[in-house]
Design a protein around this nucleic acid. Structure first.
Lengths: 196, 196, 196, 196
DNA sequence: TATGAATGAGTTTTCATTCAT
DNA sequence: CATGAATGAAAACTCATTCAT
């Protein structure tokens, strides 16, 4: 009970911090701003986090997990067929305000990671885990004849990741109303994966 | 003048600032650090830039132009054939220490742009310009029968950009020794562009 | 709260700032000096004032109000007769260390106002209000036959103000021991106001 | 010749500095601003003045002398009669743009003098000299029967000074178009000096 | 003489962190 | 647990002064 409260309060702080990071940038996240946005006093923050860096890392984690769990959910809730990729990839792109926020935080995280070995390692770990799941899925599709077999599942996976990352990046620069169109253009590519 | 040309001194400041941003992150770029790295006093900086923000923007510009001019140079120095894409794309990826630095700065710039409308607009402008050049090149290749015509040149361009961006991003997380391999994997894709 | 009331702390800062301005001049009022004189850390100042300019304005206000309330008190506590002017005017001149300080700050304020429209407007507003009060008083004295009626009450008021201002100014240049004499010389003038 | 050049250049600097002080306040007088307003380089200033403080003092002197010499000129160019006071006093008030500037600088000087013993002494010296000249003039008028003899010449002088100082002060807060009227109101007082 | 680049001490301001209440 | 006043190090920026050219 105590524990749950404590954890949910931590998550709330992380979520609010993530929002502020997305909207105003990491450099404008101050303890005062955060406390104000939380509607609490500065002192409260130190009950849940040892220092500001921990808050930032928690915000990073929070956004990161939201993106990933969203995609995993999309994967889990469908049979393995090429058509299922459409919603999966859409979940991976910043087409809604929620995912816009999360991607902005994630790119802040990536940029931060350039100078933080630990963060970089943690990210690579996560990434590898995620990729292997994806690779297995594609392998299944290849076995079922839904995806061409002349290209390595690992390569397809890698492509998909880099492409989605790059596309997410481009889309964050676009106004919201153009993003859906941009996403659909990308989905047209899926046909290239079909066996000829 | 006492020492050197005004513009080249400005560029020197921008370059050193870019180096510090890449190595230690934007948040650790202080006027003190910068002056120290330049081997000059803090006051010098204010001779060449009105304030820190201008220095940061100049550093962003500096890195940005280096990447672009590197790619453009690669394009200009070759005939238009599919094979020429290999070195062009390689120039676009962070496989050398120089381009590693430049890409890191560029991603800092992108992140910074999330909260700076002006910067975002300027980036989009540049990007569009660059893309149209790329698109023309691909169009030429299609006319020469070196690139399949069943896919729109604009789409190929967009894909290439997002893929290179995403790949550059992934590679920055890798240690240097693995990057060449990663780049080559990507280049294997070029075959997919050949007319079947 | 940890120590004291917010408003009284603000006033304390203003008062100490006024003291420093009077003693060392506005140009030597630094946040460091002020914090030192307050016996607190620099950071405290920013709890009570958004920036230094606000502190300066508060110090100006503080001194200004002290002079005015001192005179008004002198007026209020007496019947309206020509003799009462003596203590009233004396309260308006820098004959005590307190009023010396306040007048020095007030002249700093005036000088500052030369380049600050807002301050100038605010001062004029206050002045007009004060004058009309004075004018009413003189009007009453004229009605009672204590002050000659061949001169306009408004003109007398204006003269009194300019004369007191000028005299205050001159007296600030004098050592303390000569000020009382100087003030008395001025008071001799009051006889000129009697109806002949 | 050299000497003349040197001196006239010094005066030019002082005059430009005075202008800047009047327009933007002493705190905004920087060597850069001054050099810019002079249309020369910063280094030039150090040829004519040892440091900034000397420039400020020279600017103070410049304005001070202009006011005084203007009044003395008005005195010298007329016979000693009560009517001559009108133009004399008018020269002493800030009714023209030139005298506005000079009075603003003079009040900056006075304020500065609060914390500078030397300046204060120099001012008192000048003032006494000026007063004695004025007193002699009034004495002459009294002998000629143009000014009432029941008031001490020294007191009249002192009053005139304080009143003009205070009036000058008030007028600096007024917009230009109202100053003439304000000055005339003051001149009405001269009649009070006539022997009844 | 004139220039203006360079210096660096000093200023204001910000902000994570601490801790008495 | 919560508050927010207090701290003070560190940041950006200013500016009089110096001095090589």
């Amino acid at each position: 009970m105590r524990k749950v409260d404590h954890d949910s309060r931590r998550e709330e702080v992380a979520a609010v911090a993530a929002k502020l990071i997305a909207e105003q940038g990491l450099e404008n996240l101050t303890t005062r701003n955060l406390a104000k946005a939380m509607g609490c006093s500065i002192g409260v923050l130190s009950h849940y986090f040892a220092n500001k860096q921990e808050i930032v890392l928690a915000a990073f984690d929070w956004a990161d997990e939201r993106i990933d769990s969203r995609i995993q959910e999309a994967i889990r809730s469908r049979d393995a067929s090429l058509e299922t990729f459409v919603p999966i990839i859409l979940e991976g792109l910043p087409v809604t305000p929620e995912s816009d926020l999360e991607w902005k935080v994630r790119f802040n995280l990536y940029t931060y990671a350039f100078t933080e070995q630990r963060l970089r390692d943690a990210q690579r770990q996560k990434l590898l885990q995620f990729r292997s799941m994806m690779e297995a899925l594609i392998g299944t599709l290849q076995k079922n004849g839904e995806v061409r077999r002349d290209t390595d599942a690992a390569l397809i996976t890698r492509l998909a990741f880099d492409l989605v990352t790059g596309a997410a990046h481009s889309m964050l620069m676009l106004p919201f109303e153009k993003r859906q169109e941009s996403a659909e253009q990308l989905l047209g590519l899926l046909d290239q994966l079909r066996p000829s």
